[in-house]
Design a protein around this nucleic acid. Structure first.
Lengths: 345, 345
DNA sequence: ACGGGCCCTGTGAGCGCTCTCACCTCCCCG
DNA sequence: CGGGGAGGTGAGAGCGCTCACAGGGCCCGT
């Protein structure tokens, strides 16, 4: 089956163009230092033969793979409900594609899987890795560190102390949260609740910190931990309503959670935003625009974050075309957030 | 930077174990035909040295890559709103991982991108491809055909005539649609509307066919084309309500569309399911369970479909471990659907 | 007790590419 | 008009692995 004729080699191209393999190679790799007539002849031979370089052979000698692994460590919960990763992936894909790098997707499914991923990364199959969604106790960073694979993290990784040189791209979760609360207080709300994300993730923890920055002496009852899912949002909202039926605003740690909260509020007969103002985080369009009422939320440019992650990694890997538009050593990036006003607050 | 010590080679392992490179290789690849004491010695050497085979060198001689491309050709619309692809990806990832294959993700972003993908596939970087979401006029199948890359499609590809040997995995869209309508008529509904998906996709077309099978002489006004998105669902529902305010049921081509329709119905003051029964398709949990009311829908096992696609491809590629549990030539698979009753119909 | 065969192990070639280095051509300057 | 140098090109090695094949030990049959 699939008995494709053997693909032409550089040798064949060289022969057809009447040059040496070395010259053919030079042309294929940009053609610097080869005189014009030869360049043209080789190019034509490539064309006619439909030559495509054998990446394996090339990697064998260059030790580069032009491939980057994307590690997503949390398929259970978020990935499939939240367009968040999909958007980042898209940004990453665009950037990698633009620089002729491949995207190898590694979905980590469970505890044992970490070992597999570690082995893979250590195996030197890819030039670098883009890693997402680390929980506090995640063994992955350690493994990666050990593997010595250049890495950029999506979201500030949490490793209290040490290894602070890790590169990451994040949005300013803390300031975004402050902005949300500021908006709520600006609306005259005083009994503002916060439904957090899983606090073993820095994004959730940072947002909580931002909330506390503004609400230092609020009733601790007004904060309840959740998990970034709609169902979790519902649960948290019910809990909140029970504890403090008089609350007049809710800052949910992400849009999905807000959607769940909104539903419970409606059930309970509250009007949004009249009785309770609700604000989310992320501005994931299909969610934020489709809630009832449409969600006021803190926007982060997710796709751009993906793009930046890829760009950072490529620079870290010394990719020429990427390095030129930015000098100096690559460093982590924290993007600003913006408040998007819709109807819910 | 990242000046990792050079990774050990097979040569090093062989030396340490006191055997030849060939024997070391045999052990690394399963150890058949090597006597026990040697196997153990080599294994230990591998362990101690932390040896990982160089995939590039291996591929260079075997011409296998143990990597499969996943091509998703529609990032604009669905991928990011619909957990559909994410779920399939997960199934695919699990299956590939189980057989030590890598997943190379190719997101196709536009017209020009097709060429890039075609080139990549033709380049022989991967052993096979899993391709999603083909529109009628998609050039991709042609390119792939041309590239001679073993491929399995997600969803029945549409190429009227020819190339019918193409492998695919799909659910029984037509029968699923019939089942939906059957349920609705069973509820005593007679003025049943259908909001389709984009009709240049076979899944949408097949569902429409199924609808027509049951509603042969329905008012053609009751069918309106949409695009599988919530916003599209809203638009379609409004249109429908204008055309036939007396409709008493809606079969939406997917859950997202149904969610949009539900919202418009509520706005218009209709009660669901009392005034209008609504049924979706897919049973994408975060959507179907979270609508108001929860959505009755036609379930397809999306993750399983992904798993099957991968398995089919692996068999097609002659993967031993996969071939054993199924005899004969691999053939396309059409999975049954099941009706999931919730509150909306 | 001896030869044939089988099983196991090692040797060597070569996958397709890049890269170093030597060589050769031409140009320019003295 | 000749020599030095720069720029262009080619030869050859070798990346790390697998695979065909050769060769050597051991067991069995007679």
């Amino acid at each position: 089956m699939t008995d494709t004729a053997p693909r032409p080699t550089l040798e064949a191209v060289a022969a057809r163009a009447g040059v040496s393999r070395a010259t053919a190679s030079r042309v294929v790799n940009g053609g610097d230092g080869v005189r014009e007539p030869l360049v043209a002849r080789v190019r034509r031979a490539v064309e006619e033969l439909g030559y495509v370089p054998n990446q394996a052979a090339r990697s064998l000698v260059t030790k580069r793979h032009d491939a980057v692994a994307v590690v997503i460590a949390e398929p259970e919960t978020r990935v499939f409900a939240d367009p968040f990763f999909a958007l980042q992936l898209r940004g990453i894909s665009k950037e990698l594609t633009a620089h002729d790098n491949q995207l190898v997707l590694l979905l980590v499914e469970g505890r044992d899987d970490h070992a597999r991923v570690g082995r893979y990364l250590a195996g030197g199959h890819v030039d670098g890795a883009l890693v997402f969604s680390l929980h506090l106790d995640d063994p992955l960073p350690g493994l990666i560190q050990h593997a010595g694979v250049p890495t950029v993290f999506g979201g500030r990784p949490d490793w209290s102390g040490g290894r602070s040189e890790a590169l990451y791209v994040d949005c300013d979760n803390r300031e975004g949260a402050r902005e949300a609360v500021r908006h709520l207080t600006g609306l005259g709300r005083t009994r503002i609740a916060h439904i957090t994300g899983p606090l073993d993730q820095t994004s959730a923890a940072d947002r909580l910190d931002g909330f506390r920055d503004m609400m230092a002496d609020a009733d601790p009852q007004l904060v309840v931990e959740s998990d970034f899912t709609p169902a979790g949002g519902e649960r948290a909202m019910r809990e909140l309503l029970e504890r403090r039926p008089d609350l007049d605003a809710v800052f949910a740690a992400n849009d999905l959670t807000a959607a769940g909260a909104l539903r419970v509020l409606r059930e309970s007969g509250r009007r949004v935003p009249e009785d309770v103002a609700v604000i989310g985080f992320d501005d994931v369009l299909p969610v934020a625009e489709q809630t009832e009422p449409p969600l006021t939320t803190v926007r982060q440019d997710i796709e751009e974050m993906g793009r930046l992650m890829a760009r950072l990694l490529l620079r870290r890997l010394g990719h020429r075309a990427v390095a030129e538009d930015a000098e100096g050593a690559p460093s982590s990036v924290v993007l600003p957030t913006t408040l998007v006003r819709r109807a819910s607050a």
